[in-house]
Write a protein that binds this DNA or RNA. Structure first.
Lengths: 198, 198, 198, 198
DNA sequence: ACGCACGGGACACCCCGTTCCT
DNA sequence: AGGAACGGGGTGTCCCGTGCGT
């Protein structure tokens, strides 16, 4: 990897944390300088502007999260187990966040409501859609394999799953208390066992 | 009511919407001028600064939401019915938001994560705590009256309820699609009937 | 005198000092409130605005000065004595100013250079013209009566007289030291005796 | 010279004219933007505030004036000729001012009377003192060389000289008419020949 | 006739994003 | 890649003048 490319990745990694903690609009280039150890000249060599860097940082942050899902996905081939593994990923984020500062997708979704970067909002939508699709596919594949009850509506379950876990992430972040996230995770687990597993 | 007091309330009402849509940090005094029809001179006569106004606006926005809960609370004395009424409030927010721009508490919680106004974060915590307490009290009173199953952990249910509904509100806002909120509401309703109602 | 008229004069008197000390643009209505003991409501009942009051205050201040000239003018009928009496008026202003804050005409002339109130500038010009005319008339009458040498150019002497005394007033004000004004007065006196008196 | 230094000097030059014409308090940063072609961001990079810039502009303006005196000073070694050269400088200011808007020292002296910047007032005092000292030194050196009559009191003459020329500058500015300044200059010239030259 | 609340306007200063030069 | 330089926009302050109440 070239030195320039390495610097670029360094910037993205540092920026992802800054943007996720502080907010995409609230984070200043000065914050990014401090986090990266570089000056504007060095940052702007690699990115056309704050927004471009913010998008790259968002993608990186989402990528870090998705890597967790991919890791856990190897555990078991059973659909319900895979869904419970996803719940475990959320549980784990409480103690060891993929990127500090909460869920980047939720952060971007909230921040770009009726203002802020349209491009970032679009990325947030696409990311969330990937997650919904992942869950939906798991449910539908599970149904095809007889592992999931036929009366489960895949799309609705995906919405419920993400609503619950994202909302719980917000509450846990607001209070600095793992309990809301644990409560939500336990509920989804129980729901998976009692109403989803075939 | 004096003219000044009326103006002050007018500012708060307009500001509540601006702050909720745009964000507490991202909203500019210029935005508030446009929304209120007043100039900085007129606004700063009533508020010591943007933050003071933001807090008042947040309180107003939360008050608007809480008024909805109070309205619905009169429907039935039964604890589960009261909880379902709360779910209905969330449902109603999708079509007729109390304050446009999503849930002010969630917005404030996300925005003040690791940066932003500490006072606003504190207000968000207190507001969310009031809601949790309201739900918890409903459950516990229901249990005392035999309307709610004894194995329901009130605090955990409150967390679950708010996580689910708030997360769903975020998803609904992100997509401009009522379905995630409806899916979450339906799930909580079903859960209330199958696992909470005595 | 009606109560309103008395209040009006009170305002003008107080404002004359404030404007002369602080400057016509720099003086604030708040300064005038403090000086008069009235509030804006009381002031604006008598004057259409700050400028109108400033003009009245300027006229009053100039009137106070001109009263000094009129007082001294009674001393002697001799033209040169009358001119020396005018010099004495300037001398007296150093210890007992007609209006504190320097010569109002000079103040207005300096302040309205290329900016500021055109009306005020006009008043300053008219006031200074009255003074020039007074001196010129004295010289010409003195020449007619054989009291003043014929080779004295009246208009030029008037300019010299006022230039010297006004400039000296400025220097004396700048240093808080009577000497520059005394030096200038002595010079004009000597000049009157050696080159003007017939 | 670095670009920043060049910009700084450009600002000072433009600001000197603006401040001298409009007044140090009355001139707005917006005026300075217009005059310099820069925006506040560019101006405030070089100066800590309006006052700091005003002081630098005053120094520059005074420096422009003093350069005129230095130029003329080379004409002749004779004390009286040097004094007449100073009179000529004042004469020249009527048609080609060093800085438009009148004498910066007088302007500052008038404006800072009993209000306004103490620092600016101090600069005005120091500048005027330099001028008085220059004249005084010329007289005293002239006396030592037998070029100036021994009965001339150097300090008093310096006061007279500056009072007359500054007052005349004010009158000339007030009327937009060179005559008062010419009359005063002619008088000082005549006085130099008849009462000062040995 | 006066006090006081109120609102419009303008201003000073600050800080952020970006560019250019080195 | 560093850092100076600049444009732009935002915040809060103060001032002037109006209108209502007393």
């Amino acid at each position: 990897m070239s030195r320039g490319e390495e610097t670029r990745r360094h910037i993205v990694r540092c920026a992802a944390e800054v943007f996720n903690r502080v907010g995409y609009a609230a984070a200043t280039v000065s914050d990014l300088e401090e986090a990266t150890g570089l000056r504007t000249g060095g940052i702007y060599r690699h990115f056309g502007g704050k927004e471009e860097l913010a998008l790259a940082a968002f993608d990186h942050a989402v990528g870090c999260l998705e890597a967790r899902f991919v890791e856990e996905a190897t555990a078991s081939p059973h659909a319900v187990d895979r869904l419970r593994a996803m719940v475990d990923v959320y549980r784990g984020l409480a103690t060891e966040p993929a990127v500090p500062g909460g869920c980047p997708v939720m952060n971007a979704a909230i921040e770009t409501d009726a203002a802020g970067s349209a491009a970032l909002r679009d990325r947030a939508r696409r990311a969330m859609d990937r997650w919904r699709q992942r869950i939906r596919a798991l449910v539908e594949e599970g149904q095809a394999r007889g592992e999931v009850r036929g009366d489960v509506e895949a799309a609705a379950f995906a919405n419920l799953f993400l609503s619950t876990m994202e909302g719980a992430t917000m509450l846990t972040g607001l209070y600095g208390d793992r309990k809301p996230l644990m409560d939500a995770a336990d509920h989804i687990d129980a729901h998976l066992e009692s109403r989803v597993r075939a």
